[in-house]
Design a protein around this nucleic acid. Structure first.
Lengths: 226, 226
DNA sequence: GATTTAAGCAGACAAATGACTGTTTTGTCA
DNA sequence: TGACAAAACAGTCATTTGTCTGCTTAAATC
């Protein structure tokens, strides 16, 4: 809705469009067009469907859309503009959240790395106020916990953690994944691989000034196979 | 904390130092919300941003959105409702796809189970024409491959697989995850745990009539930690 | 030929949505 | 403190957008 300042020529500007090409029934072409628009970033309005299909009346497009909803080939979010979606069989849609995926984390540069991520990861079912990021695991020190090199870990940003939790810690300017152990006033980063030795630190409380700094807790592990 | 970028009034930028804001600035949270909505299927309206961020005025949300466009972190299609997109130069959003998550797979009931899933999983970067589903792993037979009980595997539906791939196979009315080995005309389902024995089958080609039937190939492994 | 049915058309209206103007609050710094 | 700017707020309006009602046309059906 570009009010006063926006020229109308821009307002009517193109969609992902194809000229008139009667392929399939009108209804099938409506469905195909909605799918294209959804893939292109946003579902279309009824009038965009009308123009794309060459209808002379808005209602023609709307009838096709409603018919597709009745057939179960489309879903609709009532009361919203551009409310047509792909049907999900009645089960509720997961709450998807995008999490920045970081390449390399340097000392102190966590915040900068989050600001300029290498990519984005879709994660579900997590609190909206949690600060999350994702890292790719290097090394085989956690294979015993089912975390292999190349796996992606989703990390909840926090400065402290409890005994037994798997954390991402910054040790000597390098981020590593280990299991945290708190014993006798010591902080131990415990690998889950007999070939690796635990890292033991003195202070029981981590902070910006200590040798070790906890960046966060691992809340999810992902692995892509080929 | 490092100095923030200067988003506003670039002409006067040198004189005015940017104030240090609390962790999740409002503008950053607006950007995150738009990204999430785009991943969920459609960009939000200005008023949806307003409600999500808790603004009491629509204009507050709109100013943030326009500022993000000026910063180049968002793009806008003028003249359209829900016209905010990601800029072409930025990091691309993952193409999120929803995959049905199945509870228990009975013999022959895969198609029915897919039709009526227990839930949906957001998966990215996969071909749109692939038929995918998700399963929860039972048993410890694949711990050596980093697949633990309770993990969720994303499976690409296919009847055959190649040697060495991790597959989901239907054996005696039960779906199991194993590594596939094809040797000397035999089909071997190889566990990755010394405590388990491989399952050996005669025919090199699986089908509806044989003892074993391959349901698909594991393409992703996920594990949630508390 | 009359009836029915489906598809499309035309126009109108109300709600949703984007945008504008002006005011108030809030935080920073001289 | 007071000046200043950014941010947030409140209210209003224009455009878009969904939806409704009634009408026309064409094909199928009896």
């Amino acid at each position: 809705m570009p009010p006063r300042r926006t020229p109308r020529s821009l307002a009517k500007a193109p969609l992902v469009r194809d000229p008139v090409r009667p392929r399939g029934t009108a209804r099938a072409r409506v469905l195909a067009f909605v799918r294209e628009q959804l893939a292109a970033g946003a579902p279309p309005t009824v009038r965009e469907v009308q123009r794309a299909l060459g209808f002379k009346a808005v209602e023609s497009a709307r009838q096709h859309l409603e018919a597709l909803v009745a057939e179960g080939k489309l879903a609709k979010e009532p009361g919203r503009s551009r409310g047509y979606r792909l049907p999900m069989g009645g089960t509720p849609l997961p709450q998807v959240r995008l999490v920045p995926q970081l390449g390399r984390v340097q000392a102190g540069g966590l915040r900068e790395a989050i600001e300029d991520p290498d990519g984005w990861l879709a994660v579900e079912g997590l609190q909206c106020d949690e600060e999350l990021f994702a890292l790719t695991v290097r090394g085989e020190s956690m294979t015993g916990a089912g975390i292999l090199p190349g796996d992606v870990v989703v990390v909840r940003r926090q400065d402290t953690a409890r005994d037994g939790e798997i954390v991402v810690a910054l040790v000597r300017d390098e981020a590593t994944v280990k299991r945290l152990r708190l014993r006798d006033g010591q902080v131990v980063l415990q690998p889950e691989n007999p070939a690796f030795a635990p890292l033991v630190f003195a202070p029981a409380v981590s902070g910006p000034d200590t040798e070790i700094r906890i960046l966060g807790r691992v809340v999810e592990v992902r692995r892509r196979l080929a």
